[in-house]
Design a protein around this nucleic acid. Structure first.
Lengths: 207, 207
DNA sequence: AACGGTTGGAACGCAACCGTTCCGTCGTCA
DNA sequence: TGACGACGGAACGGTTGCGTTCCAACCGTT
């Protein structure tokens, strides 16, 4: 027991036999992170609780991610994958209206309504989270807005230089502000008025 | 030492001599809470750190507030007191434009930019915070918007039934969404376009 | 059948806060 | 001027989370 040379990396064979990270465990952890994020927020999120919720040993978590931040980045990035469908109803107004309806439904989703504000708050103090959130939310939004506007331009409903940036902010900002801050149901004609405001802002830009 | 009846409040005299809570200490704590809130957020805010930052014993804190939540509610409510000035330039468009400029400046303020998202996130899981934030932000906003619109109606620039709710959301939502999520400087004509969108949405409502 | 690495679970020492209690000091009202 | 009570500071026991390290059990490739 004393003459063993510390084994100069004998030969590590291939990765392994059946001893490989089980995807189901990974998914369980990701789900637990998501739920925990909604329940207590990023600030209070702890690996210990995540593991407990996932029904998993802490070691299983640390085997995959070195710390809290990478896990959250992973989960957030995963959200971006399944983007929202792009409405294509044949007319700008109905496209915008459909988009608003979809957006308001997503923002009302209990889990989303908890997580997004939390991530935005954390993004203000963490550049990596900021980029992940931006990629997951804003970029996908912009893609949708671009498509809707491109279609409208092709139909001659909008001038070619419609302001996409403003459109994106008008389509999400007011809804977010109202739903998160007020948390009251939207007034009756709210989405219609907002639709008018957006289409007018886009079309009347050059007039 | 055994026959002492637990002192039926002998007579407590008046409050006290010079042993009264010192306002400067209270202020120091409030300031520390505010800074700590910006630095680490509500979730991670600890009485211990607040006391340390304020240069104060923990006891001084607990002498004033029983726990974390009341302190924060206190500080948040205090923010509502000094409301923003109401622009009154003599025309709707310039009023709105001034309001947007003011709003964007406030939202850019480093401390505010950190705290508001954080409070909104916490409001999603805490009804008391939600009400405090709503009172501090939304109500004061609405007051300003009402004044601006009332003036415009009096000048005949707007119909009497202009949609105040929508106006409030349009004036804050897009700016917030862009500044917090994008954190890039506003594009050149952004405030102008937004001004147009808002005034149009208000005036064109019934047309 | 054997190997190797993952599995859930328990425990480690360490650190941060919790809310409370006890100091000796200090300032001010009565 | 005396007494009351807040002051900063230190310490209390208890809880929680950290990141690591063991363990026996399991399982799929070879």
């Amino acid at each position: 027991m004393e003459n063993e040379p510390p084994a100069p990396r004998p030969r590590r064979r291939t990765p392994a036999g059946a001893a490989v990270l089980r995807e189901e465990v990974t998914d369980a952890i990701r789900t637990a992170v998501f739920e925990e994020l909604a329940a207590v927020g990023y600030g209070r999120l702890s690996i210990e609780r995540v593991a407990r919720r996932a029904g998993v040993g802490k070691a299983a978590v640390y085997r995959r991610w070195p710390s809290k931040l990478p896990i959250v980045l992973d989960v957030v990035s995963a959200l971006a994958v399944q983007g929202l469908p792009t409405p294509d109803t044949g007319a700008l107004r109905t496209d915008v209206r459909a988009l608003l309806e979809l957006t308001s439904r997503v923002m009302r989703h209990p889990m989303v309504a908890q997580i997004i504000p939390d991530l935005m708050a954390e993004a203000a103090r963490n550049e990596e989270i900021a980029q992940a959130v931006q990629a997951a939310i804003r970029d996908s939004q912009r893609t949708i807005a671009e498509a809707v506007i491109r279609n409208a331009v092709a139909r001659g409903e909008l001038p070619a230089d419609a302001d996409i940036d403003l459109a994106v902010d008008l389509a999400s900002g007011p809804l977010y502000w109202r739903l998160v801050l007020g948390r009251s149901p939207l007034p009756k004609g709210y989405l219609d008025s907002l639709t008018t405001a957006i289409t007018t802002a886009l079309g009347a830009k050059e007039s």
